[in-house]
Simulated scan of single mutants.
Amino acid sequence: MFIQLDLESSEPIYIQLRNQIIEGIAKKKLHPGDPLPSVRSLAADIGINLHTVNKAYQQLKQEGYILIHRQKGVVVNPDGFPKADNKYRKQLRNSLHPLISNSISRELSEEEFTKVCTDIFKEFAKEGENE
């Protein structure tokens, strides 16, 4: 699997794991219906506590990215992914506020900030085409 965690990061491991699975979906490395490793298997493969994997999986389940079946295991949601709604847009604004204020404080211009965002969008699109 494509998961690479930074154990020295200040970002919690379960958040890194959650974000990387969502990134895998966005880059089309994971598709609707694809199986994911079990909690125990992924924890052993990465070398982290199974409760950490479970916490990431529970968040992904709540957000609609994965389904957890007792018999089938963990799968990427076969019905597709949640679309951006007003609740998501509000959450996005709240998430961007500290990033933008930090960028402004560091004298990063709006154009530079927007370019970083555009470059990331292009990176995802390019990687998605290669799958």
Score class of each variant (00 low, 15 high):
Ile66Asn: 01
Lys61Ile: 04
Arg89Phe: 11
Glu127Lys: 12
Glu129Gly: 12
Ile3Ser: 04
Lys27Ala: 14
Glu110Asp: 14
Ser105Gln: 04
Thr52Tyr: 00
Val74Phe: 01
Pro35Trp: 05
Ile66Ser: 02
Leu50Pro: 07
Gln62Met: 09
Tyr14Lys: 12
His51Pro: 04
Ser109Ala: 08
Asp6Pro: 04
Glu23Cys: 11
Val76Gly: 02
Ile13Glu: 07
Ser9Pro: 02
Phe124Asp: 06
Ser103Pro: 00
Glu107Pro: 02
Leu5Met: 05
Tyr14Thr: 06
Lys55Met: 07
Ile3Gly: 04
Glu123Tyr: 15
Ser10Arg: 12
Leu36Met: 06
Arg18Lys: 12
Lys126Arg: 09
Phe81Trp: 09
Glu8Asp: 13
Leu17Ala: 03
Ala44Arg: 14
Gln59Trp: 14
His97Ile: 08
Pro37Asp: 11
Arg40Lys: 12
Leu17Arg: 02
Asn77Arg: 11
Glu111Leu: 15
Glu23Asn: 13
Glu107Lys: 15
Ile15Gly: 00
Gly24Asn: 09
Ile15Asp: 00
Leu60Lys: 03
Ser41Thr: 14
His97Val: 10
Val74Met: 01
Leu96Val: 09
Leu92Met: 14
Leu108Met: 13
Gly128Lys: 11
Pro35Met: 05
Pro37Arg: 06
Ala43Ile: 03
Pro35Gly: 06
Thr52Val: 10
Ala26Ile: 07
Ser109Lys: 08
Arg93Gly: 09
Asn130Tyr: 00
Leu67Thr: 13
Glu107Val: 06
Ile120Gln: 11
Val76Gln: 02
Phe81Val: 04
Cys117Ile: 13
Arg70Pro: 05
